[in-house]
Nucleic acid binder design. Sequence first.
DNA 1: GTGGTCTAGACCACA
DNA 2: GTGGTCTAGACCACG
Lengths: 137, 137, 137, 137
Amino acid sequence: MKTHAPAIFSIAPGSSDPLYKQLMEQIRRMSAAGQLADGDLLPSVREVALALTLNPMTVSKAYNYLEVEGLLRRHRGVGMLVCISTKSHLHVTQDKHSQREELLRPSLERAALEAQQMGMSNSRALALFKQILGENK
Amino acid sequence: MKTHAPAIFSIAPGSSDPLYKQLMEQIRRMSAAGQLADGDLLPSVREVALALTLNPMTVSKAYNYLEVEGLLRRHRGVGMLVCISTKSHLHVTQDKHSQREELLRPSLERAALEAQQMGMSNSRALALFKQILGENK
Amino acid sequence: MKTHAPAIFSIAPGSSDPLYKQLMEQIRRMSAAGQLADGDLLPSVREVALALTLNPMTVSKAYNYLEVEGLLRRHRGVGMLVCISTKSHLHVTQDKHSQREELLRPSLERAALEAQQMGMSNSRALALFKQILGENK
Amino acid sequence: MKTHAPAIFSIAPGSSDPLYKQLMEQIRRMSAAGQLADGDLLPSVREVALALTLNPMTVSKAYNYLEVEGLLRRHRGVGMLVCISTKSHLHVTQDKHSQREELLRPSLERAALEAQQMGMSNSRALALFKQILGENK
DNA sequence: GTGGTCTAGACCACA
DNA sequence: GTGGTCTAGACCACG
C-alpha cells in the first residue's frame, strides 16, 4: 500500500452538477487514466473537505457511492483505498481502452444528439470536436 | 407573421433534466436549426401543455426564461414569437453555422475535458465520436 | 366643431403598460396640454387602429373609459368629441396648472419613493430630474 | 459570508404590481442603497414566505429572476447570496451613486416625458418633484 | 383566444 | 436545513 495519491481533486463552482457527482466522476476518470492505481490511499474526507471548502458530508457521499460501485474499498482505521483489479467496477473485465470509452460515451452521445437536432452535419461536428481537443492540448 | 410552426415539441420522460429546461433547449436548437424562423408564432402554452400532458405553468416557465434570454418575444393577445433578428441572443450577428457551433461547444468541451483527464488520446476520442455520430444516423 | 385634431397618437411597443392605457394617458395629457381642445373631434377608432396597427377593440376600450370618465363625449354619427368645459373630468373646477400637476404627481411620487428607498439624497434626485428634463428639451 | 441581513422585505397589498416584482425591485434597491452588501445571505424562501404570508413559489420566482439577472447567486445548501462585486449587474463597475441613478432614471424619464407632453414647464415640474420629495421626508 | 399571477400542497435533490 | 420542480386549479388582464 502506497501513501495517498498526491493529486487532489477540484470542483467547478459554476457547474450545475452536484458537488458529490463531480467528485465521483473525477475519481472514476483518474482511475481510468491510471493516475489512481489499485491500492492507492485516497485523501481523507476531512482533507478533501478542507482543501475544497466543501461540507465533509459531500465528500463522504462521493466516497460511499464509489464504494458501493466497487471502485473504492473502505479499510478500517486507514481510509479509502482504490480497488481496481479484483472485479472491475465496470461490467467485468475490460481492457483499459474500452473502459475509458464507456466513461466518455455518455458525454459524446449527448453532444451527438444535440448536433443532429440542430441539423449540423456530422463532418462539421467532428471538425469542431477536433478543434476543441486541440485547444486544450 | 406566419401561422404557428407545425413542429410541436417533445419531452423525454426518462431524462433527469427538468421539463421546462428540456423545452428551452429544444426551442433553442430548433431555432438554431432553422426549424423556427424569426417571427414564427410558437404554439400556445395551453396547446403545448395539452399535447405533452404538462402543466401550463411548466410550459410558461420555459417561454418566460427564453423571453428574458431574448429568443422569444411576447406579442400581446397573440402569443410568443420567435425573435432572432433583433440583437441575436448569442452575441450579435452570426451566421447560422457559427451560431450552431456556439450551442454545441459546451457539450464538446465537456467531453474533451473528460477524455483528456482520462488520458485518452485525441484520435481515440475523435474516433469514438465519429462512431457515435454514425450510429444515430 | 372643428375637424379632428391633426395630432395622432403613438404607442411604445416596449412598454409593459397595456396599450389601451397608453392611449388613455396620452389623450389625457394632450387635453391637459391644450393640444386637444373642447369640441375637438378625435380620429375614429378605425383610423387609430390602422395607423398604430392595433386591434380596434383596444382603441375603442380607451375611448370608452374616457367617455365614462367624462373627458370624451360620443356624438352619434360623428365620433368622439373632446369634452372639457362642462364639468371637469378631474374633480370639479381646477385651473389648468393644478390639473397638470395632478396628472404628473403619481409618476413623481413613485420616483420619489424609489429614490428614498435607495437612500439617495433629495438634492441628488432633484439634480438628476433636472438633467433629464434638460435632455429632452 | 455573514449571517443573513436583518432587514426583511415588505409588500404593498394595494399595489397592482405582481408580488414577485415588488420583491425584486425591493431587493435591487436595498442592494443599491447598501442595505444589502456583497455576500450577504438573503432570508430563505420559506422565511420570507412565512413572514409575508406568501406562497414560497412567489418568493422563489423573485429570487430566480434576480439570479438570472446576476444580482443573486445560489450557494448550494446555504441559500441565496447577494452578488454585487463580480461583474455588476449594471454594466461593469460603477460607483454607488451612478448605480442608484441608473435605477432611478427610468422613473424620472417617464415623468419628464409626461410633463413635457402636457406642456408643463420644466421649472414647474421640478418644483412639484421638490415638494413631493419633501412630503415623504 | 392569449399569457400572467398566485395558492396549496406534494415530492425530490443537495449539503 | 436549503432551493427546485411539478401539479391542479382558480382568477385576472389584455386584445
